[in-house]
Design a protein around this nucleic acid. Structure first.
Length: 201
DNA sequence: ACTACGATTAAA
DNA sequence: TTAATCGTAGTC
């Protein structure tokens, strides 16, 4: 079993954490996916950050210590997965927008509503986890997974790759936050260049 | 109680 | 381009 990343990894500048999470492995109940796309949401100035405009109680994990999950429900049907960063008392988190399926693909496909016979289809494979709402469905992440300590939980954590891997990081603007005024165009979205599992926009 | 809307997705 | 769908928050 791969070792979970510790609190020190998350308790850093949010942009650094967002970039550093690319290529790491998201692991939950035996399902494994490589993180290929993230976004940073930082503090009370950032108008897109929930810590700024949602009530403190509804995004409480964001205000807590680093390394905790912040899962919330939106659009009436989808969950979003974030990892809390920076120090206790400062609201910031990294949104996991897309992963590449590594292990447990059959189960992911089943969670996404596909039949076993469809797993060989390349289009189906690429559609399993290539978006924030899709990957939470594939990994069966829901409200019960909110506010868990990912540095201590043996069933839900993020780990480093055992082998070294080099890739190019693309930096661009975040998605779906046109209401955030001057913060709409901050280049706080990061993804692995040429990876087919990055969400489309 | 009533209403508006969102860090999305899939189908048309 | 748009409907699906519901928790949260603001207003009546």
């Amino acid at each position: 079993m791969l070792k979970p990343l510790g609190k020190a990894f998350y308790a850093r500048d949010t942009i650094t954490v967002a970039k550093d999470l690319l290529g790491k492995y998201l692991i939950k109940d035996g399902l494994v996916g490589k993180i290929v796309e993230t976004e940073a949401y930082i503090g009370t100035e950032d108008k897109a950050c929930h810590g700024n405009w949602r009530k403190k109680e509804t995004c409480a994990p964001m205000w807590g210590p680093a390394g905790f999950s912040y899962v919330y429900f939106t659009y009436g049907m989808y969950f979003m997965l974030n990892i809390v960063s920076e120090k206790d008392g400062f609201p910031a988190a990294v949104l996991i927008r897309a992963v590449e399926p590594v292990e447990g693909i059959e189960k992911m496909a089943k969670n996404r509503g596909y039949k076993a016979s469809e797993i060989g289809n390349l289009k189906v494979l690429k559609n399993l986890t290539s978006g924030p709402g899709k990957l939470t469905q594939a990994f069966n992440i829901k409200k019960a997974d909110n506010n868990l300590d990912l540095t201590k939980n043996p069933h839900f954590y993020i780990a480093k790759s055992s082998k070294k891997e080099s890739f190019e990081i693309v930096k661009t603007t975040r998605i779906g936050i046109n209401y955030a005024e001057e913060y709409t165009h901050k280049p706080w979205r990061f993804y692995i260049k040429n990876n087919p599992f990055v969400s489309k926009f």
